[in-house]
């Protein structure tokens, strides 16, 4: 390490003490967003697996229950929502795990930036590459379940909105269990009860659309749930990560 003195004049002269970093938070958040997007896109299977799981689960129901279109149509909103919820849940375990294993999580915790904001960036990427694709794919599976016409748009919108809350709440569970070797089942145990309100209003919105009732109330409540999750979840995620890193 003696060569390459050509670099900037860092290598001699006294080291300055850094002050409080200013305006660095945005740089760090943007870089974290970009890094996680790149990472996910380089391992495409992590993006595709939840989608395939979603399609598979939906395939199981007509086989397990009955291919009768009328019956399927009545249970379709709930089925689609439950299957999408499980698919999103399944992918959550990996949200912080690889970072934990290779040590970048402790570096994330040691950055002089607000941890809650950095964690939020990671959750945003998760939603963008899991929740949103699930929402876009749901109408296709809706056709297979003879979902009545006129509810497809609501299905996609409610899933897009609801899955953001699911990602946020689920990230708390992922952060709490990231240090545990057998966190996979535990995370479902922690997170699923908390998912119930989102499921109720999400599936309710699709049902309301089928019945021809107004859906704006449901979507508004989903939005409110998201707002609550946005306020509380980042802090809970940050606190949980600090706990998990302590081992």
């Amino acid at each position: 390490m003696s060569s390459a003195e050509s670099g900037p004049a860092r290598r001699d002269g006294p080291l300055p003490l850094a002050g409080e970093p200013e305006g660095g938070a945005m740089v760090a958040i943007r870089a974290t967003l970009k890094r996680d997007l790149v990472l996910m896109l380089r391992r495409r299977s992590e993006v595709l697996n939840p989608l395939v799981f979603f399609a598979l689960v939906i395939t199981l129901f007509p086989i397990g229950i009955s291919p009768d279109p009328e019956l399927l149509a009545t249970i379709a909103p709930g089925l689609l929502w439950v299957a999408a919820l499980l698919a999103a849940l399944l992918s959550l375990d990996g949200l912080f795990r690889s970072d934990y294993e290779d040590g970048s999580l402790e570096q994330l915790l040691l950055s002089p930036q607000p941890l809650a904001a950095l964690a939020l960036a990671k959750v945003a990427v998760h939603w963008l590459l899991t929740g949103l694709p699930l929402a876009l794919m749901a109408p296709v599976l809706g056709i297979m379940l003879s979902l009545p016409a006129g509810s497809y748009g609501v299905l996609a919108v409610s899933l897009a909105l609801g899955s953001a809350s699911l990602s946020l709440i689920g990230a708390i569970g992922a952060a709490l269990t990231v240090g545990l070797s057998r966190g996979g089942v535990l995370i479902s145990l922690l997170v699923l009860p908390l998912y119930i309100p989102v499921l109720i209003f999400g599936a309710g919105a699709v049902q309301a659309a089928i019945l021809g009732a107004g859906v704006s109330a449901h979507l508004a409540i989903l939005g409110a749930l998201l707002a609550v999750a946005l306020i509380f979840a980042p802090w809970a995620i940050a606190a949980s990560l600090r706990i998990s890193i302590n081992g």
Partner: peptide, 12 residues
């Protein structure tokens, strides 16, 4: 860690 984690989950 168990105590802290359980506390956070109880608060959530």
């Amino acid at each position: 860690s168990a105590s802290r984690a359980a506390s956070v989950l109880a608060m959530v």
